[in-house]
């Protein structure tokens, strides 16, 4: 039963992802999610200077998560990865300078810090745009080629076995020379 449900969800997700249609029901945060959220909140309170730095530095990722359409979590992930890489040198700097609230505020108020962190996030957006475009074009061309191959193979089958091999399937395309 569980397997069936899983498969159904997978099918739905595939169709939606491919054709962009179909509504996916938004689920609430599960027990695990709630647990991790609690751990993060507690850790954030314990390591408050670091948390504050990251909260400001990771704002583009947060915006991406909150405002991106459903089912495109990969895009937020792309942005977040680069955004995090952009925050990394300042986190290290914070940790090396005592990891206190003041140091954190100093770093945040440096214009260079914000620029580096947000440019890194922008780079993440760029990676998403470029790579997605390249891959989808590649896959589209591959699909076109496969369709041509299918028609070629079908023509061969009809040539060898006659039109009867198609059964009740429409073979009008052979006459149109598609």
């Amino acid at each position: 039963m569980a397997g069936k449900k899983k498969k159904k969800n997978k099918d739905k997700g595939g169709a939606a992802g491919s054709a962009g249609g179909g509504k996916v029901k938004r689920k609430g945060i599960g027990l695990k999610g709630r647990f991790f959220l609690a751990v993060i909140v507690v850790a954030g309170l314990i390591f408050l200077p670091t948390s504050m730095l990251l909260l400001v530095g990771m704002l583009p990722s947060l915006v991406s998560v909150l405002f991106s359409s459903k089912g495109v979590g990969a895009k937020s992930s792309t942005v977040a990865a680069m955004n995090l890489a952009g925050c990394a040198p300042f986190v290290l700097d914070l940790w090396s300078s005592g990891n206190d609230f003041e140091a954190s505020v100093d770093i945040l108020f440096s214009s260079q810090t914000i620029m580096v962190m947000y440019l890194a996030a922008a780079f993440g957006y760029m990676i998403d745009w470029v790579v997605t475009g390249l891959v989808s074009s590649f896959l589209y061309q591959k699909g076109i080629l496969r369709m041509k191959d299918i028609r070629k193979r079908q023509k061969f089958i009809i040539k060898r076995w006659g039109a009867g091999v198609a059964g009740d399937v429409d073979t009008g395309w052979t006459k149109k020379g598609k």
Partner: peptide, 20 residues
């Protein structure tokens, strides 16, 4: 929209590898 999902997944992988 054809291949966008697959493209984004690839982009995410690329981005994470770069970030690491």
């Amino acid at each position: 929209i054809y291949g966008v999902v697959e493209g984004r997944n690839v982009a995410a992988v690329v981005s994470w590898i770069g970030a690491i």
